[in-house]
Amino acid sequence: DIIVVALYDYEAIHHEDLSFQKGDQMVVLEESGEWWKARSLATRKEGYIPSNYVARVDS
């Protein structure tokens, strides 16, 4: 799995977006363009995230 960590807070604009806080970790489910589908490890919610707001966690 690709794990990313939030670099900034993000408040969902559309209902399919995923809100998150700086430091939150998410599993990337699908990478396509600038918006990635991800699942929050904390809340288990899924939605689209702006890929420029996150960084990959080296395992």
Rank of each mutant, 00 (worst) to 15 (best):
G33R: 04
W36Y: 14
S19I: 02
E34K: 12
Q21F: 11
G47R: 00
G47W: 02
F20M: 05
K22W: 04
S40W: 02
P50V: 02
Q21D: 06
Y10M: 03
F20E: 00
S51A: 13
V4H: 05
K45S: 09
H14A: 08
A12E: 03
I2P: 08
V57M: 11
V27Y: 08
H14V: 05
E31F: 15
S51G: 08
K45V: 08
L18R: 00
G47F: 01
V57Q: 08
K22Q: 08
I13F: 10
R56G: 06
Y53F: 11
S51T: 05
R44K: 14
L41Q: 06
I2N: 11
S19F: 03
L7I: 09
V54R: 00
E16A: 11
E46M: 09
E11N: 11
P50H: 07
R56C: 09
L7K: 06
V28F: 03
L41H: 04
V28G: 01
K22Y: 05
E31Y: 13
Y48C: 12
V54P: 02
P50C: 11
D58I: 12
K45M: 12
D1W: 14
R44D: 13
W35L: 07
I3V: 10
A42G: 09
R44V: 06
A12M: 04
V5S: 04
T43N: 09
F20D: 00
E11M: 12
V57N: 06
F20L: 02
L29C: 06
I49T: 00
L29N: 03
N52T: 11
S19D: 06
V5N: 03
Q21A: 11
V5Q: 07
H14Q: 08
H14C: 14
R39M: 11
W35S: 06
Y48D: 03
D1G: 14
A55D: 08
E11P: 06
E30Q: 10
W36L: 13
I3L: 12
R44F: 15
V27E: 09
D9L: 02
S59L: 12
P50W: 07
Y10V: 02
D17K: 08
K45D: 09
W35Q: 07
G33S: 06
L7C: 10
H15S: 14
L7D: 01
Y53R: 09
G47Y: 01
A6E: 00
S32G: 14
P50L: 08
K45G: 07
S59G: 14
K45P: 00
V57C: 11
I13Q: 13
S19M: 04
